[in-house]
Design a protein around this nucleic acid. Sequence first.
RNA 1: GGUCCCUUCGUCUAUCGGUUAGGACACAUGGUUUUCAUCCAUGAAAGAGGGGUUCGAUUCCCCUAGGGACCGCCA
Length: 466
Amino acid sequence: MKKVATRFAPSPTGPLHIGGVRTALFNWLYSKNKKGSFYLRIEDTDKERSKDKYKEQIVKSLKWIGVENDGDEYIQSKKINDHIKVANELLKNGHAYKCYCSSDEIEEQKQRAKQKKIPYIYDRKWRNKNESEAPKDSKPTIRFKSKINGNTILKDLVQGDVQIDNNTIEDFIILRNDGSPTYNLSASVDDHLMNITHIIRGDDHKINTFKQMQIYIAMKWELPSFAHIPLIHTTEGKKLSKRDKASTLDDYSKIGIMSDALRNYLLRLGWSYKDKEIFTLNESIKYFNLEGIGKSPSKLDMSRILSMNEHYIKNIDENHLFNQLTEYCKLYKSEIKSDKKEKIKKSLPFLKNKAKTLEDIFNNGQYIMVDNVNFNQEDIKLIDDKAKKVISDFNTKFSHVNKLSKETLEPIVNELIKSNDTNFKGVGQPLRIALTGSKFGPGIYDIIISLGKDEVRKRLTNKKLS
RNA sequence: GGUCCCUUCGUCUAUCGGUUAGGACACAUGGUUUUCAUCCAUGAAAGAGGGGUUCGAUUCCCCUAGGGACCGCCA
């Protein structure tokens, strides 16, 4: 058995969206499961649209989600000569021919086909014409001589046997009239040269596969296996595109989605293993297979992403969570001041309890991170004379407490409930507003302990409360 | 329009001819609770339609309908 090799081959012409990330993930997982290799190939032969910043974004995205390529990135534009060499070989052995049609001529044919509502397919005009009839001063394109008769069966590892009439595949261009190779040529040559054994890619490539298979066959190369995975759809049911909102990884990381959670979500989108929902990285490598990939497209569902993230927030190691949080704050919010870090870390057990995202934890922990309380304009109105008395009464008794814990604080609160003839809310709410600026938030004892004695006393004597 | 693909709760899915069609998210209700949450329990919720094949079809085949992808000298 040949060693399994997969690849992910994006073109750096736009930001990588999560459909691409999932394709990369599946390729990577498959290769790791088979103890094979996974390569990253940058298909940058469209010089006009390829941008370095997109390439960097792609590399960064894959790294973020945990997909690592073996070896260096393969830069397609550096291999153009290999592609041209193959084109010439195909030309020499009769599998390709020169086409002298001008682009205007082709364009006209397409228009005509559109008007007549018949499918456009290149009319193979130059397939059998003699070179001597070629117009002068006209540079030809090189077209692949596709099969006209019979049919081809693609044994797709996800979709099963897919049969197509050969005459529906046109004589596609492999070399432009400027001599540069086109996608189908470059991709097949590279896949062959890289010894790719399994090509796992989006369903939208299926027609290309039939073209590329013909190149393989004409060159007498050993065919790789193909697996076409269903596309990810938007909630409207259309193919996800770069223009769609919330389609890049950054769109998710900036709202505080963690990479492990998104990886797990993407893994389960279109793939399943029994009833298992949560997969560690190692488990996903261990269980991933092509049989588990479904045949129908799946829609993106934000609430599932959120709940997956919530699961990870509540279950991962707290040190790890803290690191993720500090990194997140640094990147997208404001860096947590060093004197607040320890307080935040200790408070994570309850801060994370009501969070679906890192952003939620940031918001929940805001009261610890700030030096001065930001009062909610509506909530501060709840501080009436009665509340003020509760606050100052509490402060008096609190000043005698040395060790902060629920056990030492609860008696004080209970006393105040009695002496002020109120209920827990009558005490808890004013204190919460005084300490955090909002009537919503963590439990009052958690707040007090997280802030520390000095900070609590400082906040309880805030002039805005008197 | 042509070619190809798809179709189980709202969503992601399990089922590989015999199940009260299972799980998860979301939703609803109840309980716990000091606010907001968490947590726990319960509930509602699906085989697109029609033909076959079979003792028996969600499962296999065909047709219809609906949805999607592709149809570049882009990748």
